[in-house]
């Protein structure tokens, strides 16, 4: 039995790991990957100590610090559920393994929201992309659609306008992104903004060939011939493992106190998966530290 299991290897989980290790509590870190959302972030200019750093590099430094301590890491495993039995927790992975601990910190962050329309899963990587900064140049000279109306969608559009033959923005609502970004793109010759449309399905052969959209007010349907569809419709918290035991808010985020407690004794949560109002790397790291220190107090009070 471990003293503590940390679920998630992003800034919150990795910082919690360092704090836990330095308190000499027997810790296991289980995560699908190391870095989480930070892996998809190229420009970081507001993490203290660095004028500018790229996501993968920052995570490498975080992990280098963690591996100096004798804690166990199980990377590449996805946790499916956490349950509380007597005075300990059972953490189950998708591959069928179970680990036990006195305390758990959930630091699983968020993932991209999917459209959940026919064709989306089938054409993932074959025209459907969730990372404009990765894949935009591959669609140079082609027609693309960007689904979403917030900053991520607008920034993706800004990049794509420079490379694609034509960009369609398809947004369920009026644009919610920053006016400064809207101003930068609104007069582009190769841009069409379609507001109050939802995506119905994605059509293609070997690769994406078109996207079908419908106006949510008038019901009017359009078929846009595109080779690429960039899905930028926000993020969902990876709170599924604790949904049976913890309290979640209306967006599925884990509700936490200022000491990262969830209401379930021994279960703590930190970072973007929680209802902390700001989702930033430096905040996730801070919350990871708080959670580990509180978990340490809890474990010592158990008398074990």
């Amino acid at each position: 039995m471990y003293d503590l299991i940390i679920i998630g290897g992003g800034p919150a989980g990795l910082t919690a790991a360092v704090y836990a290790a330095r308190k000499l509590i027997k810790t296991l870190l289980i995560s699908q990957d190391l870095g989480g959302q930070v892996n998809e972030t190229l420009r970081i200019e507001n993490y203290m100590g660095y004028q500018f750093v790229e996501g993968p590099e920052l995570i490498e430094k975080f992990n280098k610090q963690v591996t100096q301590y004798p804690l166990e890491q199980k990377v590449g495993s996805k946790v499916s559920s956490v349950s509380r039995l007597d005075c300990h927790f059972e953490v189950n992975t998708e591959s069928g393994e179970t680990f036990q601990s006195k305390a758990v910190i959930l630091a699983t962050g968020k993932r991209s929201r999917s459209l959940n329309v026919p064709g989306e899963a089938e054409y993932r990587g074959k025209g459907v992309s969730y990372c404009a900064i990765c894949d935009a140049p591959v669609f140079t000279g082609m027609k693309v659609a960007v689904v979403g109306g917030g900053n991520s969608a607008l920034e993706a559009s800004y990049d794509l306008i420079k490379m694609a033959e034509h960009v369609y923005i398809v947004s369920l609502t009026p644009l919610t992104g920053d006016p400064i970004t809207i101003n930068r793109i609104k007069d582009a010759r190769n841009l069409t903004i379609l507001l109050e449309y939802q995506v119905e399905k994605i059509e293609g052969d070997k690769f994406v060939e078109a996207v079908h959209i419908k106006n949510i007010k008038t019901g009017e349907r359009k078929r846009l011939e595109v080779a690429g569809i960039f899905v930028e419709i926000g993020l969902v918290p990876n709170s599924e493992p604790v949904k049976e035991i913890a309290v979640l808010n209306q967006w599925g985020e884990v509700k936490v106190s200022t000491t990262c407690e969830t209401g379930v004794p021994g279960l703590f949560a930190a970072g973007d998966v929680t209802d902390t109002p700001e989702k930033q790397i430096v905040i996730a790291a801070g919350e990871g530290a708080k959670a580990a220190l509180q978990a340490d107090r809890y474990i010592r009070n158990l008398g074990g």
């Binding site: 870095g35 892996n39 998809e40 972030t41 190229l42 790229e54 996501g55 993968p56 590099e57 490498e60 990372c131 900064i133 990765c134 894949d135 935009a136 140049p137 591959v138 140079t140 990049d159 490379m163």
Partner: peptide, 29 residues
């Protein structure tokens, strides 16, 4: 790879750390 792709960067960092030689083709250009 493309120049602004963080996953591409992670792959190249992994190869560099393990001293593996590779040819890097920029599909953006």
């Amino acid at each position: 790879s493309t120049p602004t792709c963080p996953w591409c960067k992670k792959v190249k960092m992994f190869l560099d750390t393990n001293k593996v030689a590779y040819k890097d083709l920029n599909v953006a250009s």
